[in-house]
Amino acid sequence: MIRPFLFFRYLVLLLLLTGATRAYCQNDLLSSLERQTADSLRPTYTTATFKGTRVINGQSVETPGAHTLLFLISHRFGQLNSGAYNFFGLDQATIRLGLEYGLTDRLAVGVGRSSLEKTFDGFLKYKLLRQGSGPRAMPLSATLLATSALSTLKFGDERTGVRRLTYTYQVLLARKISPALSVQLMPTLIHRNFVATSNAQNDVYAVGVAARQKLTKRFALTGEYYYLLPGTTADQFRNSLALGFDIETGGHVFQLHVTNSQGMIEKFFVPQTTGRWWQGDLYFGFNVSRAFTLGGR
């Protein structure tokens, strides 16, 4: 038997409860929805650690996305200190034309041709680890790079094809510290099948560091330095240093920079840099890339 008084108390209590929830319903519905969907948040990968696939001379952790074809024009003028007669280097030019294609979002292949030593190069690049946020996310990105370069210059000697090959292996480790600042570390091994003198090293080890600091959404400062580990190559050559900036406009990325290296692939700028910054042996240059999307995702 229900006592009318008790029933009335429960009814009042119930009305109060439903009344109370109804008053905050608008916020409640969204916040309960957000609570429900919070656990479905998957780890999201950090994007655009660097604007382009190159920091300046060297490669960045970035690859073209799946089915994206990138056309790269890299260009270096002559030395700035070569005098008015050479129009401060602008009379001379070395160039590399390159194509890169993303087979997947993580794997890319590329080919290129440098005017320096008439060199063909090809590479494979794989994003092994991707920095992200959310559960079990990686704190940094790691990209593996393997390149080979074939010089087709007519040397005085009869040089076989095998002797003209140089290989580069890099582990690119990068972290986007904030939306504006990214840093990268590049342990590097270069193997030259043939070196001209007996005391030159076939294997050259180097460690590179690079950074990108955005000044606005589409404009960033970049820097890149390769330190040659002690050895005869380090004694005879300079460490490569490049400073520049990136400008992004839709499908293009423009990179303008000065560097003491003339070549634009690893086999040139890591072990064969001769320019001295403090003497003005500097090359002004630019990289331009254009992305084309082939097929759907």
Binding site: A48, A66, G251, T293
Partner: peptide, 15 residues
């Protein structure tokens, strides 16, 4: 949000 072009998707999120 998924775009046909990966570069567009990057710009959408970044810029």
């Amino acid at each position: 949000f998924q775009f046909k072009r990966s570069l567009m998707q990057e710009h959408f999120n970044e810029n």
